[in-house]
Design a protein around this nucleic acid. Sequence first.
DNA 1: ACCCAGGGTAACT
DNA 2: AGTTACCATGGG
Length: 266
Amino acid sequence: MNNIYRIPRPKTFNLSLCLDCGQAFRWTNKDNRWQGVAYGKYIEIEQTEKEIIFYNCTEEDFKNIWANYFDLQCDYEKIVSSYNDEHLKLAVKEYDGIRILRQEPWEALCSFILSQNNNIPRIKGIIERLCEEFGDGETGKKTFPSAEKLSRLTVEDLAPLRAGFRAKYIIDAAQKVANGEIDFKRINESPIDFGREELQKIKGVGAKVAECTLLYGFHKIDAFPVDVWVKRIMAEMYPNGLPECTKGTEGIAQQYLFHWRRMQDR
DNA sequence: ACCCAGGGTAACT
DNA sequence: AGTTACCATGGG
């Protein structure tokens, strides 16, 4: 915990919202710090009035991993202020600072395979058990297990996760990624439709899981995942489809609307 | 006991 | 091409 790296708080950046708006599942808050692992590194992060403070983080880690993870080079203020639609303006006003994280593709794929017909607290539990069982490193700081490692396991090996019918989908995804049948590099370099087709070759990956993987794992911000909450939003507010102002950044609009709509029911 | 959760598949019309 | 039961699990 020696290295500390501080930056001024960027505009349109809210750490808690970024990490706890239903796009990433491994972050936990303790003593006003968010703790988590990504790209093989454990980190603790705190937001103060004027700063974001990264603990256990060298300048190199910040530049190579975390600046990218939080999409800091992207001007969200510009994007979000272009939303001239009334519902979106409300969502942005109330939850300003949500950003689309650049998660690892494999972690995003697994996470959203596990998300199907499931709820967020349970998804978090399954992923935590997955990492504790098969990840590397210390307890509580384990890495997300690689596709190569999971590809050598069986459905029975995953029983402790209590993932239910989703376990067999994880194994299939791991095998197809590990043996190169699904090529992350090509998906990354290609337009979104290629990724849509490729990812849906995996058992248990349909349109929605593919869309989430492309948005959160490949940062295709024109992806637009439609889950039960977004279905409600579309039915209640956008019977004729999304407003024009979201063109090209549908995924970002989706994240604001998703979180906003979910918070209304509590 | 019933319904729902960041859905997908297979088996039906 | 469009519906529908079923899929494991756990919380409300």
